[in-house]
Amino acid sequence: MNWYDIIFYVFALLTIVSAVGVVFSRNIVYAAFSLLFAFFGVAALYVLLAADFIAITQILLYVGGILVLIVFGIMLTSRANSVEMKKGILRIAPSVIVAGVIAGTLIGVLTTTRWPSAGMGPAEETAKPIGTLLMTNFVLPFELASILLLVALVGAVIIARREERKEGLK
């Protein structure tokens, strides 16, 4: 085992332990904090896969954006959460069975398949090639994504705001 392997196993362990903490935590605030470490662990895995741009995007968007949204959601709905996190889990046996079967099947298939591998090339910076690809081969999905973000933002604002506009409109 060289350093690459050791670092990989450390961060894989961090990711999986944090994800277990997210899934099995009784307290939703602890779950959100475990999710923080899970996101950092995944970002570290991206770095090990030589995806520097994606790793930074992961930290900026997931940790800085989505996790903050989740914490806001927890705070704004905290009255309902604090009461019944104890019995906030239902259907334990079916969920364990389904998740276990999925995990077993996936890991079994993944470890027995012979993947066509081109081997690891040298790690290069990826930001510039990704930008070029976005503007050439992927320009249509790129523009669609911008429209989608606009629609999602406007939709989220309209859905989330209170029902005060009824008397305002009439």
Partner: peptide, 29 residues
């Protein structure tokens, strides 16, 4: 394998949790 484990944990959270925000966390996983 790491990704498969994360996926299964997410599936477990989506199926077993009542709280909608916990379901969202499972989807993120």
């Amino acid at each position: 394998v790491v990704s498969a484990i994360l996926f299964s944990l997410g599936i477990y959270a989506v199926i077993s949790r009542k709280n909608a925000i916990m379901v969202l966390m499972g989807i993120e996983l």
